[in-house]
Design a binder for these strands. Structure first.
Length: 581
DNA sequence: GCCGTTTTCGGCCCGACTGTTTTCAGTCG
């Protein structure tokens, strides 16, 4: 699939054009094209074949031609043309906070600065002084920007940011001056990574609230503390911003600060056409404020349903809200069990009973114990006879429980040749079989896809765990043809997992939506190795919501008998089709 | 370069902040 390549090519074209000072609207249309192509769930080559490229909003005749040229020749003449005389490194300088296209272009033109090292040298040598439009303060800010750029290169997983936000909100809620409080930004949208944390507060005494915020425990550095805005760094290293608005503006401010940028732009275009204006202070008809206390008002006034924050990425949610066809997104309270967990039988810390007790506290009706299989020595994988013993232990425990079931399961390794780590006769004794890849990551796309598809076709495999194997900010996933994997799952009645563990979150939102659209069932599972990790179900549900997933698409929202039936159906289906069994 | 319930031309989101210059350009979210 060339979607990603083509999207980043358009993004690069936009960056270079920006640096060259070309028409802003033209630049924006390249950015828009990059964005929609990056978000597509279908293969762009397939769309091109059916000549439907221009049906994609933001893709017109010109862009379509460029896409087709790239598909056919592997090159895009527009890109070749714009990049002449510009270094990639120079374009990269625009990533530095405070440095936009104008300044970078000036530095490059006047001082011959190409990359970061040149810039640092020029700063050191005091060469920036005296350039038109650049004063003392600007030079200082560029130096600060470079520092910030170096630190903030990494976004952190939402799994790390989420507990920080919970802690801060709990602390601020004790402040008597405060009315409303809500996390905004990419965290509220449940993006898998966040750059910084935004918290929005309403209340009359802004300065008091900001002061309390700056004095919270866990704050290591106060970056700013004014009447309406505070900015701190906390011990986990993340920057947290708080903004205080008056109660009457809270809804519109929340809408504004939640984003995404693309969603807000699209919404404001619609507002404008209808004769309204939206900003962080409200929605206005002429000079008259017609809403702003609640976020819902804004969407309602614009003639659409309220859009859950997780969908606000300008991926068709606005059109769906206008038509009243938004999905009825899954909720955390819909989850009835967790289907991928590890006990102290393999590499987890809790006993089976501790896991069960915690699951009951969470209101679940079942929990699958899916310890590792024999080949995974590093994770103390269970030998066949050990798994049989564990099954007996689970049977014993289940007799003690009332209205709760520990499901017999295993996270079985998919070996390099696509076979499974346990024989079928052993898998047959399990309620749920979770299969996954833990080795041979470098096999190559075709081989690894074949291997995965072979496992999916096994009669006993119910769930494919962490389907791409990626670790956020640590490891790219193995190369795999997700369309083929989804196709095989759809054909065989196999579910794909959203692994909730904070550095996996795999499937991601885009693949998740693709799976849903192909009718593949989803399992949202924590992969917990400790009971304290089971809360991460919240993260997985967030990713599912970003993938437009509804309760009916998720197997662990099913009552236990239905869940067992789902798992058994695959075995039955194969038995019927294979007379030898 | 895209788009159309002011449709084939003319507009394209909005406001705050900062710094530099003296009325506004650049950058950011």
């Amino acid at each position: 699939m060339k979607n990603h390549e083509i999207a980043s090519l358009f993004e690069r074209i936009a960056d270079i054009m920006e640096l060259k000072g070309e028409n802003t609207f033209r630049i924006n249309s390249y950015r828009k094209a990059a964005r929609v192509i990056g978000d597509l769930t279908e293969d762009i080559e397939e769309i091109a074949k059916t000549q439907k490229l221009t049906d994609i909003p933001g893709i017109g005749k010109g862009t379509a031609e460029k896409i087709i040229e790239y598909i056919n020749t592997g090159k895009m003449s527009k890109y070749e043309e714009v990049k002449k005389g510009v270094s990639e490194e120079t374009v990269g300088l625009m990533q530095i906070p405070g440095l936009g296209p104008k300044t970078v272009s000036l530095l490059s033109r006047e001082l011959g600065i190409v990359g970061l090292r040149d810039l640092e040298n020029a700063l050191q040598a005091g060469k920036l002084k005296g350039l038109f439009g650049i004063g003392e303060k600007k030079i200082e800010n560029i130096a600060k920007g470079i520092e910030l750029f170096k630190i903030s290169q990494q976004r952190i997983s939402i799994g790390l940011a989420y507990p920080i936000v919970k802690r801060i909100i709990a602390e601020l809620q004790r402040n008597p001056h405060m009315k409303d409080i809500q996390a905004a930004g990419s965290l509220r949208r449940m993006r898998e990574t966040v750059g910084d944390i935004d918290i929005l507060v309403s209340g009359a005494k802004g300065a008091e609230i900001v002061k309390a915020f700056a004095n919270m425990r866990g704050v290591t550095q106060v970056l700013a503390a004014g009447d309406t805005r505070g900015s701190v760094r906390v011990e986990e290293g993340v920057q947290v911003d708080v903004r205080v608005v008056c109660e009457d503006d809270f809804g519109s401010a929340l809408q504004y600060f939640t984003g995404s940028k693309e969603h807000n732009i699209h919404l404001r275009e619609i507002a404008k056409k209808k004769g309204f204006k939206i900003n962080e202070y409200g929605i206005f008809k002429g000079d008259k404020k017609v809403g702003g206390r609640f976020e819902q008002e804004i969407y309602r006034i614009l003639g659409m349903d309220w859009i859950p924050p997780e969908l606000r990425e300008n991926r068709g949610e606005i059109e769906a809200a206008q038509k009243g066809t938004l999905p009825n997104l899954i909720k955390l309270s819909d989850i009835k069990g967790d289907l991928h967990n590890h006990s102290n039988w393999s590499d987890g810390t809790p006993t089976l009973e501790e896991m069960a007790v915690h699951a009951m506290k969470m209101g679940y009706q079942c929990l699958a114990v899916s310890d590792h299989s024999r080949s995974l020595h590093v994770a103390n994988g269970l030998k066949e006879e050990e798994l049989l013993e564990e099954i007996e232990e689970i049977d014993r425990l289940n007799k003690k429980f009332n209205g709760f079931t520990l499901l017999k399961a295993s996270e079985v390794d998919i070996k390099a040749d696509g076979t499974l780590d346990y024989p079928d006769k052993l898998l047959e004794k399990l309620d749920v079989v979770v299969a996954s890849i833990h080795s041979g990551f470098k096999q190559g796309r075709e081989k690894i896809t074949e291997r995965m598809v072979a496992a999916i076709h096994n009669h006993y495999v119910n769930i494919i765990a962490h389907p791409t194997g990626r670790l956020i900010s640590k490891r790219e996933g193995y190369e795999i043809d997700m369309d083929k994997v989804i196709g095989a799952c759809s054909e065989t009645g196999t579910a794909l997992e959203i692994n909730c563990y904070y550095d996996r979150l795999d499937l991601n939102d885009i693949n998740c939506r693709k799976a849903k659209e192909s009718g593949v069932m989803i399992a949202i599972s924590t992969d917990a190795h400790h009971v304290d990790q089971m809360w991460m179900m919240e993260l997985g549900v967030g990713i599912a919501r970003r993938g437009w997933v509804e309760k009916k698409n998720v197997i662990n929202t099913l009552f236990i008998d239905k869940l067992k039936a789902f798992c058994l159906k695959k075995r039955g289906r194969n038995k019927r089709s294979d007379p030898e069994i």
